[in-house]
């Protein structure tokens, strides 16, 4: 088990490194040198060159990369070309927002999705078809469209939830929760549909296993077959599905943050890309990857722990 954990850690590290290289190369492919970006349109060539040299822009790429990597390892992602603020400080402020959004949406998706999927698998017949149709519709509608409708219904027609904006937890826990509610629900619609399908498929597959027949042959009550044995068997792919959901949500919260004006990582990606703010782009890509890889690692280990075959070995 320890070897397995070590191997996964190594893979995680490798992934982050690969992404770091990728981000670095992409940033260097972006139009406009740092000097041009930070000084803006009317700047003189000398001023631009001066900034570029100070930032080491013309140094050989490997030198620049390892220099950046060294600082990054210590938590320093440089400063934004646009407003000169520390990238890492900015990201540190934004991370909790996206994390809360993604975690909340994943949690809600999981709870709703598993409930729906199990119901569809167990009841069969009409219930199954209805759930299937609803889920089909839920994944077909774009999340931002759903979000706008929710804003219209819940924030405009009835002002239960705030339409936009984020309130930090320290300021007011209730308002924090309310500000997260609409975005989380919006993202959870599609997420729950995805997990519901996965759950249904896994439950049906579990029920096709031969040991279910053995359980029936020993007069096991139906509820136990479904909710203890089948669900346990299905838990592995379901948890894996939830892990995938989180990865998708974390990266995909860009749109939700745009729609609901949440100051998270997604928003940071969007603005830094539009403004060609190289250090910000690099920083946010790497940070997002680190978080996603870390969570993925934890969930993967949890999955393997659930599987007796890997736990016992």
């Amino acid at each position: 088990m320890a070897i397995y954990v070590a191997k996964r850690l190594l893979m995680a590290l490798a992934t982050v490194l690969v992404v770091a290289v990728l981000a670095f190369l992409l940033v260097h492919a972006m139009p406009g040198s740092p000097g041009a970006v930070s000084l803006g349109a009317g700047a003189s060539q000398e001023a631009i060159d001066e900034v570029n040299n100070r930032l080491g822009w013309s140094d050989p790429l490997p030198v620049q990369f390892f220099g950046w990597l060294g600082s990054a390892a210590q938590g320093d992602f440089g400063v934004s070309l646009i407003d000169g603020r520390s990238v890492s400080a900015d990201l540190a402020n934004r991370l909790p927002v996206t994390a809360a959004l993604a975690a909340g949406a994943t949690l809600l998706s999981a709870v709703l999705g598993i409930a729906l999927g199990v119901t569809a698998a167990v009841r069969g017949g009409l219930v199954d078809r209805i759930v299937g149709a609803v889920c089909g519709l839920a994944v077909a509608l774009p999340a931002f469209w759903i979000g706008i409708i929710f804003v219209y219904l819940f924030a405009v027609q009835s002002s239960v939830f705030p339409a936009t904006g984020y309130v930090p937890f320290e300021v007011s826990p209730q308002d924090w929760a309310l500000s997260l509610a609409l975005p989380v629900i919006t993202l959870a619609v599609g997420g729950a549909a995805f997990i519901a399908r996965q759950t249904r498929a896994s439950m049906l597959e579990a029920l096709q296993q031969e040991h279910i027949r053995t359980l029936r042959a020993t007069a096991t009550p139906t509820w136990k077959i479904l909710y203890v044995h089948a669900l346990r068997y299905a838990s592995l792919p379901i948890v894996a599905g939830i892990a995938l959901q989180f990865i998708g949500l974390f990266g995909g919260s860009v749109i939700a943050e745009q729609l609901f004006a949440m100051p998270g990582l997604g928003q940071a990606v969007q603005t830094s890309v539009s403004t060609h703010d190289a250090p910000s782009v690099q920083g946010v890509v790497v940070v997002a990857t680190v978080v996603v890889v870390a969570v993925n690692l934890v969930l993967e280990l949890a999955t393997k722990f659930l599987d007796p075959k890997l736990r016992a070995s």
Binding site: V19, I247, G248, G251, Q270, T289, V292
Partner: peptide, 10 residues
């Protein structure tokens, strides 16, 4: 295990 959207934006 990459955050796809972020990469695409980059």
């Amino acid at each position: 295990s990459l955050p796809g959207t972020v990469i695409i934006l980059a």
